[in-house]
């Protein structure tokens, strides 16, 4: 019995039994396996015993992989990197939800104590036509980069900037922009959307840049280009709201309204600008 076990079990709901010992789970996993983008895929059933309740979801997959390697089975491929919920690399469908059952939590921050002993967990990759499966649970999300490249920036070549305090930004505008800019680009919005639409991702970047004074000169060009690039890869929003629910950063659906408004204004304004030149 350690000195800290009392403190450890004081908070309820952690992965410890009353006497401070780690709770071990036995899980029935159904994990999607697919050798390559054009290979057939299917579920691998894994009976995972002795999973510590305190480990994260990805660490659970690490443990499963260690065992697969012992059995000479190639480990499961899954994308991951920072494991602290900010890089946006990880993300799988867990029991039919992107990033699993916890709200505002990326897969890497989901911990196994949220599951019960004996639970069956189905794990699949994020799916959309423009997110082709690379292997197993890993998908290719480069279409997001294409959207950013088409206009998700403010052109400010290095060295041209005026003093940072030259352009004041009202605090509520800066806060609004930051709310949108919190997007980590994980793709959960697309995976959750019944239409495979990328409206929330695109709206988050537009919402960030289009409200800032620095973003005004390119506002309409940006809105038109980003939306049209988005549409060339992804489906069409029908305002279900699944994206916001799946978003680990809880980006608001309201940004999509901003996107719609800015896009239509852009279509009008860009025409007028074009006709004047």
């Amino acid at each position: 019995m350690s000195a800290g076990s009392g403190g450890g079990s004081a908070g309820s709901g952690n992965g410890r039994s009353g006497n401070g010992h780690q709770v071990m789970l036995r899980l029935k996993l159904r994990i999607w396996r697919q050798a390559g983008p054009d290979e057939p895929g299917g579920f691998l059933d894994v009976d995972a015993e002795g999973i510590p309740a305190d480990c994260s979801f990805l660490e659970m997959l690490d443990i499963v992989n260690e065992r697969l390697i012992t059995d000479d089975i190639e480990p499961i491929t899954f994308a991951h990197d920072c494991r602290e919920g900010i890089c946006g690399t990880c993300g799988v469908m867990i029991n039919g939800r992107p990033h699993g059952p916890e709200k505002a939590t990326a897969t890497c921050q989901l911990h196994m104590r949220k599951f019960r002993d004996g639970d069956e967990i189905t794990i699949e990759p994020f799916r959309a036509a423009s997110f082709p499966v690379v292997k197993d649970l890993m998908v290719d999300r480069r279409a997001f980069d294409r959207i950013i490249e088409s206009g998700g920036f403010i052109s400010a070549p290095t060295g041209t900037a005026p003093d940072a305090n030259e352009i004041p930004v009202p605090k509520d505008v800066a806060d609004f922009a930051m709310d949108a800019a919190a997007c980590i680009g994980c793709g959960a919005c697309v995976a959750a959307c019944p239409n495979s639409a990328a409206q929330l991702f695109t709206a988050a970047k537009l919402g960030h840049l289009n409200v800032l004074p620095q973003g005004q000169p390119e506002r309409w060009r940006r809105a038109e280009a980003m939306v049209e690039t988005m549409e060339s890869f992804f489906g069409s929003c029908t305002n279900h709201g699944e994206c916001t629910e799946a978003c680990p950063k809880e980006i608001s659906l309201d940004f999509i309204a901003v996107l719609n408004r800015d896009y239509l204004k852009a279509k009008v304004k860009n025409r007028r600008l074009a006709s004047q030149t």
């Binding site: 900037a161 005026p162 940072a164 305090n165 930004v169 800066a174």
Partner: peptide, 22 residues
Amino acid sequence: LNIIDQCAAQGVPFAREYGGLL
């Protein structure tokens, strides 16, 4: 000094005071 200018111009949403300054 230049870095902050550069980043603000790129639209990095730095925390602001109510007066709109950094």
